[in-house]
Simulated assay, not measured.
Amino acid sequence: MVQHSSTFKAFRIEEIDGHFQGSIKEMELGTLSNNEVLVKVHYSSLNYKDALSASGNKGVTRNYPHTPGIDAVGTIEKSNSDLFTIGEKVIVTSYDLGMNTDGGFAEYVQVPAEWAVKLPKKMTMKEAMIYGTAGLTAGMSVLRLTELIAPNRGKIAVSGATGGVGALSVSILSKLGYSVVAITGKETERDYLISLGAEEVLLRSEIENFNKKPLLKPLFAGAIDTVGGVILENIIKSTNSIGVVTCCGNVASPKIDLTVFPFILRGVTLIGIDSQNYPMEYRKIVWNKLAQEWKPKQLEDTCNEIKLEDVMQKIELMLKGKLKRRTVLNLNE
């Protein structure tokens, strides 16, 4: 492949007089270090962490100017690594991408080769970004849950079910034959959740107002929790004997107030999901399952496609909680 230009377009966030502003800039390509690859980005996707980075959240991004984008998929343009050759299609998600390393809201990303995984043969680049970090996190959660809980054990709760991780978890679990209870704060999304495969929809307010007792009536064989806080507390307290709960988010709260009773009287297992530094051997397993037996039939229907110039508007909608479905950024033109 011939590199025709030493510059490329990127959506940059700049800090000006204490305010954070986003715009499209021309950037210079850097020099590759040992074991780095240059990826021509075809698609990226918008995540809540990107919106935080774009609004100056120093817990996500310390230094500006900066290019957000924790997800990217594309082709290897240059390689200083034995892991990849020029022209190979790769997915790059998590690690430090889009946080303190310039991310996928650009025509090129330059990253350590160890951050990349080959795109599965039965997955398109666009599908990879419909999944993105959200899909990888959902896949990790499903993998750990299904290792220990069979479909005939009972209902599986999924909290934050209209979000990226939650919606994909509902779809995958339903496809695998599980009876899914979707937990959401959005009553208007009931039909959408049923269309994803949920058998029941439980409003967030209902589970938040469960009894304060240390143990509650068993309702679920297991759960995938994406929100934390009181909802995670009450899911754990409502999980059957030898049940399994995975935990991957804290948008409600990073704190939980529990006794040890669910763990020592019912043998409930709580499994943490770390999508940022998940071992590569398991990433490959999850991506290949997402490409094949776990792929939801309606995957293409779960996203909206945008261009680089649309990013700021979508970030503002996401921060207001008004963005529905997955948002995929097309960088092919």
Rank of each mutant, 00 (worst) to 15 (best):
L193V: 05
I194Y: 10
R204K: 13
F220T: 06
V201I: 13
R190N: 12
E206F: 06
N211V: 09
N211P: 09
E200Q: 14
L216F: 08
D191A: 15
K217G: 09
I207L: 01
L215P: 01
G222S: 14
P214M: 03
G197L: 04
N211R: 11
G222H: 08
A221Q: 06
Y192R: 15
K186A: 10
R204F: 08
R204E: 10
R190C: 12
E200N: 11
K186Y: 08
R204P: 04
R204L: 10
E200S: 09
L216D: 06
P214Y: 02
L216I: 06
V201D: 07
T188M: 11
F210C: 02
K217E: 15
N209V: 03
E187A: 14
S195E: 11
A221H: 03
K186E: 06
K212G: 07
R190P: 01
E206G: 08
V201W: 08
L216H: 06
L203H: 07
K217C: 11
F220S: 01
L215K: 00
N209D: 12
L203P: 04
F210G: 00
N211I: 04
L215D: 05
L216Y: 05
A198N: 05
S205E: 15
K186H: 11
L219C: 01
V201R: 04
I207T: 00
E208K: 04
N211K: 14
L203N: 08
S195A: 12
E187Q: 13
L196K: 13
G222D: 11
K212C: 08
R204N: 12
S205F: 02
E200R: 10
L215G: 02
R204C: 03
L216G: 04
G197N: 03
A198M: 04
L196Y: 12
I194G: 03
K186C: 01
T188C: 10
E200C: 06
L193Q: 10
E187S: 14
L216A: 09
Y192H: 13
I194L: 13
V201E: 08
K213H: 13
N209H: 09
K212D: 14
P218L: 03
F210L: 02
A221T: 03
G197D: 05
T188L: 10
K212W: 07
I194F: 11
Y192L: 09
L203I: 03
D191W: 01
L193F: 08
T188I: 13
E187L: 09
E199N: 09
I207A: 00
L203Y: 05
V201S: 09
P218T: 06
N211E: 15
Y192W: 13
K186P: 00
E187M: 11
S195K: 14
P214G: 00
E208N: 02
T188N: 15
G222T: 11
E200G: 10
P218F: 04
E200P: 02
N211Q: 13
E208H: 02
K186D: 13
K186I: 03
A221W: 02
E189R: 12
L219H: 00
R204V: 03
K213A: 15
